[in-house]
Design a binder for these strands. Structure first.
Lengths: 181, 181, 181, 181
DNA sequence: CAATAATCGAGACGGTACGTCTTGTCTTCCT
DNA sequence: AGGAAGACAAGACGTACCGTCTCGATTATTG
């Protein structure tokens, strides 16, 4: 049923996704869908969370090397958007603009945790003296995920492993501890 | 009519925006809306473009100082999202995921030109030797606009003048021509 | 719902009758009307047939006396037009001019059966020698129902019991078996 | 323009006839139609009256022989319905059911005059002793035109010269002056 | 003979019904 | 008892036509 939702969402787009279609695709009565979720946003969110959990290694990322950690986290996150979830994520974010409850849930379950994870990695790096805090860490996080969103929305370039590498390089450059002297 | 569309979109959200509501708000027949635009996406896009043109200094940004130019462009662009257009832009981008025609129009009229303008500014800076090309300019552009999109979608922080300043600073840092020698 | 249709049709006229109005009057969603009938003609036809069946004694008319039978059939038929159905019948017939399917249905369910019933009554009379076939029975039938239609359309005189009596008298006169000799 | 109206009405039916279509067919602006007639009923009525006047010999029918006169009047009247006017007449009559003004005009210009003409012919016959008034003349008139309307609406038989002959024969039979004595 | 006026085509306007679609709620009927 | 099937009221969709209202262009009329 969650699979059906994701499948149809990617095929037809978020706006065209219909509860009726999900039910039909899943070979289920419409009422049965309503029994479990109040609307299509909740369905997709649950589907996404489930998908995310199946991909993430649930063990926290902490290899000891900050840059490796950054690269790993971004790589996992970016790859999530490559499976079949682009339409769903963007659609949900769009709906969340006018729906504080949905917005809160997305923040709490999808956006926030990843943001926190990246910041925590950087924080650890600073604490260990591996990286400087010359640039606001929050801004660095904005860059790392911002590049992803911008490409997801605009689609001028893919969101893939290569991007993760490049972003990690730039982070390294930005937060290098006093390269000279 | 365009005003009515933007107003309602910001008040109720993109998804809740209805052609009927636009017509009513504008004190106009429904058919009159359909006469001029095929759907609500086109209405909002025209409204946005009009709004953008009214705010942009149409003269190209070229003060001679690359960082000033970057700061100016970002400042203008960011401020656009602060007026009444956040919901509209995000909603349009979301719809564009499943609508290549809309996607192309958005790229051509809204997204692309700004991206090109920023890259051109950086390019000029490189040519003049003001800034290095140590980091891929495309990636720098992704950062500058990505931070904006990320904050627009996630709303963990405002998209304002201060952000423009900070981003410009980071760009300066990233593209500094050999600080040491 | 059928009641609502007949009520509104008589009050506002066939042309002014609207599916929307029927739905509202019946306290029902518009789609519910469309679920059961394809258009207003079918609704009214079903309403008429139902009404006709509720009024007609379904037992065939056969008292043994031809003229009594004629009078009885005409009386019942004429009275149908007096209840609330004048507008509906005429409107349907008008629409049927340009709609062969509707025309066929009206013939089959409303017009034809009554025509056949009257002709059968006369036929029986001829067979029993009660009446002559001096005048084409078809033409007599045309007169009996024609007078009704003419008055319904033109409304220069009512279509009532009295008309039934008079028409029966004329039929008697026309089909009298050799008054002289 | 009147021609265009009649043409389209016969082709597509009264209900499907549209002011827009008339204007287009006549190669004229829509406003120009409205300048001359308030609605399509008036257009068609004028078209019908014009057509009727072009066909009727305007000289009154009075050959001296009542039956010939009856036959002549019916023949002319019936033939009118055979040209291109069936849809129009029936549609107008239907609309007139709910529109007293239209009803009055139709009575005054189309229905009434013919009714009066036939009654006058019969009246003359009675006065001259050619025919008896054994049966209410009004009823005879109802039969003569009623048969026409019934066939026009129901279309089980044509409305033609032959019908005129037959009706005249029956009228003769009904109003015969004492055949025996 | 030029200006001025009337007339017309074209078509935009605010309305409103059409017939279709989906929503979220509610039976009903089968297993 | 639980679920598929689907009816229900509601309301937006995009289309068509209504009757009113400007617009220019093209004729006529007039000074």
């Amino acid at each position: 049923m969650l699979d059906a939702a994701l499948r149809l969402c990617e095929r037809d787009g978020y706006q065209q996704l219909t509860i009726k279609a999900i039910a039909t695709e899943a070979g289920v009565g419409r009422q049965t869908v309503y029994r479990w979720w109040p609307d299509k946003a909740e369905i997709l969110m649950e589907a996404l969370v489930e998908l995310a959990e199946s991909l993430d290694l649930r063990e926290p990322i902490d290899s000891g090397d900050t840059l490796s950690d950054v690269r790993a986290l971004l790589s996992i996150t970016y790859s999530l958007t490559q499976s079949i979830t682009g339409q769903a994520i963007v659609g949900l974010m769009s709906d969340a603009q006018a729906d504080p409850a949905l917005s809160a849930k997305l923040q709490g379950k999808v956006i926030g945790p990843r943001r926190d994870a990246l910041r925590e990695i950087l924080r650890r790096g600073v604490d260990r003296g591996e990286v400087s805090a010359a640039v606001s860490l929050d801004l660095v996080v904005d860059f790392a995920f911002g590049a992803m969103w911008y490409r997801l929305l605009s689609r001028h370039a893919p969101v893939n492993e290569e991007l993760a590498d490049k972003v990690a390089d730039v982070v390294a450059r930005l937060l290098a501890v006093e390269p000279s002297r």
